[in-house]
Amino acid sequence: MRLSFLEPLYRQPGPFASVYLDTSRDVAVDDPDAAIELRWRHLRDVLMSEGADRDSVTAVAGTVGSDVDIPGMHGQAVFTGHGRLVLLDELPAPPTRDTAHFGALPDTMPLIVQHAPGIPYLAVHVHYSGPHSTDAAGAVRIEAEVGTWPLTRVTPGHRLREEIPVSDWLNAAGEVGRELEGHARRIDVEAVVVAGDVWARGILIRRLPAALRGQITTFEGGGESQPGRALLEQRLEGLLSGRMAAHDRALLDTFLAERARDGASAEGVSAAVSALQRGRAKALFLNNHPESPLRLWVGPEPGQLALTEEELRSYGVRDVREERADAALVRALVGTRAELVVVPEQRLRLFEGVGVLLRYADRPTFRA
């Protein structure tokens, strides 16, 4: 996963207020907005107890709950610093629990996990309920969306809507197929979901290019989505849950290949820190441990991190402090433009939960 969406957070020095809050309104309470406000007050107290400045807290307060138009279960991630909003991200699922943190580095790992797996897809719903005859009255309605799963659940992608007389469908399906292909190519889709009427969708599928037909999963029915939510959301959830994006799978395969031949890879926190210090990390692989107690020592710059205070000071860094390991690692990844891949433990258990793919292997040293 490329972490460019986090770059605004690191263009200024901290400290930062980081808030994760369930802002769902489709819940069984009389006044969901009042419930959100009550939970926010608790988080506000947490921020204040950790030394947050009043202006940064006020900036969070002005943003929390602003997603009133998003239906369904979801949440918000809000980051402020020096009295202004730095980053706001809508979460496709509510956070596991509401949290707030004030510190020198933003708490970004829960946000990264919600961006995964980041699979580009095309969803198409074909609706026609009349007699299957080109002479029949009626129309075929097409609704399609290209997006990235799971973010499209709360940030709709590009939508296409067409209504075509059934008498024109055999010819028009080819044009619709070419239009869908153009949108799919722009985001390099990895999955195509087509739902709806068997007859009408079959005609469309036969007119799609072979490259897309090989990625298609079909469903009967499907129904149109809630406004503001992903098209065919439940179908996509069942199909894509637990999958990794093709780009991340390729990085993981390269890591495993390098590990098998003792090449440009390593495991463990120490190895990851060493690679990031020298800007040698191409990608970091993490088993997600949201409550990990691991800590690292960091300096003002992204590559200034170490296992101990003494090590960091030995490099000439004077302004040092101890931070959560995941926050320190993510800052280093963004600063060196390395990638991050969240790997479920059931797929691959990494030593200390961390692996690193290096940009190049150490050259062997030959001695006479």
Rank of each mutant, 00 (worst) to 15 (best):
Q346E: 14
A137Y: 14
I70S: 01
R331Y: 02
E301L: 14
D248H: 08
V342T: 08
T96P: 13
G118R: 13
T254D: 14
G238V: 06
A210Q: 14
E309D: 15
R318Q: 13
P293E: 05
E143G: 12
L252E: 01
A230I: 02
Y10K: 03
V46T: 10
R318M: 12
F255I: 00
L294W: 07
R54S: 14
F16L: 01
P165A: 03
V126H: 10
F16C: 05
R278G: 07
G221W: 04
M1N: 04
R25C: 00
L3S: 01
G65V: 08
G103K: 06
L232W: 05
V124P: 12
S292W: 04
T148P: 04
L348M: 08
E310N: 10
E309S: 11
N171I: 14
L87Y: 08
A200P: 03
A325Q: 10
H247A: 15
H127S: 13
R213G: 10
A28N: 11
V113C: 00
F16M: 03
I203W: 02
L305C: 04
D135N: 09
D197M: 06
F366V: 09
L38G: 11
D188Q: 15
L251V: 03
E233Q: 15
T336E: 14
S24Y: 09
G130K: 06
T152H: 13
Q12M: 13
R11G: 15
S292K: 02
P156K: 04
A100H: 11
D98A: 09
S270K: 10
T63P: 01
A246R: 11
G242Y: 07
R159Y: 11
V198L: 13
R261D: 08
G62C: 11
R313H: 11
R84V: 08
A61D: 12
Q12I: 13
A17G: 15
R363F: 06
Q234S: 14
L111Y: 03
V269E: 03
I119V: 14
A245W: 00
H247P: 08
D22M: 02
P150Q: 09
S24E: 01
A271W: 04
V64K: 05
Q304R: 05
G83P: 09
E90H: 14
G62A: 12
T365M: 14
S265K: 01
M109Q: 06
P120K: 05
D22T: 01
F5P: 09
D22L: 05
G316A: 06
P71D: 04
F16R: 01
P15S: 10
L305S: 11
A195C: 12
L88E: 15
G118A: 15
P32N: 01
A275G: 07
W40H: 11
G299T: 03
P8G: 14
G202Y: 06
L87A: 02
L231V: 00
D98S: 00
E179V: 08
A139P: 00
R324H: 13
L240A: 08
L305Q: 00
G14C: 05
L329Q: 02
L21G: 08
R313L: 08
G138D: 03
V57D: 00
